[in-house]
């Protein structure tokens, strides 16, 4: 197994330095080989657990309720313009 750190970093939207690449590469290899011990177990007949509680489809009444004020929601934005979050141009 050889991990492509560039590919993973790009999926994770994380830029990594050359130094981080070699460090993370080695560390992830070592952690993943530890995780391979899970293959000692035959789980072909075992259902996966995504959640320990048997709760599904939690719904509420379809009524309007108080939600966050726009100003409050925008207060922490690194950049904004009146009613909107502002980001670098995305259309050429």
């Amino acid at each position: 197994m050889k991990i492509s750190i560039d590919h993973i970093a790009s999926l994770a939207r994380l830029s990594v330095s050359e130094e981080e690449k070699s460090l993370f590469g080695a560390q992830l290899e070592s952690i993943l080989s530890y995780m391979d011990k899970l293959n000692e177990l035959d789980t072909s007949a075992v259902d996966p657990t995504s959640h320990v509680l048997e709760i599904s489809n939690v719904t509420r009444e379809d009524v309007t309720a108080q939600s966050l004020d726009r100003e409050d929601a925008l207060a922490n934005a690194p950049d904004k313009t009146e009613k909107f979050y502002r980001v670098p141009k995305i259309i050429e």
Binding site: A12, L14, F24, L28, L32, T49, S50
Partner: peptide, 30 residues
């Protein structure tokens, strides 16, 4: 945090999901 994001991204990435994520969910049941 970066290390864990990378590890998790890898475990969920195309081609590895069954080998890691689903496998771990099955062991969780055990």
């Amino acid at each position: 945090v970066k290390r864990r994001i990378m590890l998790g991204t890898y475990a969920l990435s195309s081609g590895y999901y069954d080998a890691y994520y689903k496998k771990a969910q099955q062991v969780r049941t055990l």
